[in-house]
Nucleic acid binder design. Structure first.
Lengths: 141, 141
DNA sequence: GTAACTGCAAAATATTTGCATCCTT
DNA sequence: AAGGATGCAAATATTTTGCAGTTAC
């Protein structure tokens, strides 16, 4: 059951279990894709305050429950991290896919991020790959 | 001389040549790195309106003079496109580097973006690579 | 009971729009 | 002269902060 998983996740990350956090985490588990702040407000109904969403996302981020997906349009989206992340040693090498048709963003965690050979003098600490195009569900229509 | 190059660029993209546009384009040519909306306001002095900056960046984007660099922190940065872009057929495969120390963002245009093998059903239209770490000037201090 | 979380109000920022005026072509 | 660009004012939208009341542990 999803509800117990939600609670378990919150406990594991030492966040106190409140209705708001449960609800938002639930959204992430159900949606299977990335959510923006706005998405969450909409999907959550008029249940709670906009400020709570900000603070909740912030808390989730800090605890490594979610990570943010960079974007070019001032609407950062967040997605659940896989198990390996929550532990503290974040896996930084994500491939993210953003569909130009439906706008959904998903993590392609199964893909390996190629290593980038940087020019002399540069040191890489993290590599993000952002692919945009047509996603699976859109192309099968 | 930089001034004639600025004018030339504007003309080539069918933008009328005004002081504001000249000034902003100049900043991009001088800075050799990416600039955020805020950077531009600061660097330009109190010369012109905040709104003009928005509209100018918008115009430059549409004409393909600059491109935006995605970010995870609601501060999108813009950088000059190379020649190949301005023509209309944008080169989409950039590698961008963001320094965690000085915060500067630069385009590593000389790097080739590796091709990403997507899962069945996905079609890539654009690939962005965002590397963060320590840049050349910061590591030599 | 205490510390942490939430909602509300309000401040601080950021972005967009309309319109009159000025400048480029 | 005509169309586009700019500045200003103002409307919106977004994000942050403080504080008092509530809830989780």
């Amino acid at each position: 059951m999803i509800d117990s998983k939600v609670t378990e996740l919150l406990k594991k990350t030492q966040l106190s279990v409140t209705d708001g956090r449960r609800r938002i985490l639930e959204l992430f588990l159900q949606h299977e894709g990335a959510l923006s702040h706005g998405d969450i407000e909409k999907k959550a109904g008029e249940k709670f305050d906009r400020v709570t969403v900000y603070r909740t996302l912030q808390a989730f981020l800090e605890k490594g429950l979610i990570h943010s997906i960079p974007s070019s349009d001032n609407s950062i989206r967040y997605a659940l991290c896989k198990e390996e992340c929550s532990e503290g040693h974040h896996r930084d090498d994500h491939v993210h896919f953003i569909c130009n048709q439906c706008g959904n963003a998903t993590c392609l965690e199964e893909l390996v991020v190629p290593s980038i050979k940087l020019p002399r003098g540069y040191t890489a600490q993290q590599v993000e790959v952002l692919v945009s195009g047509i996603c699976k569900s859109c192309s099968s229509r």
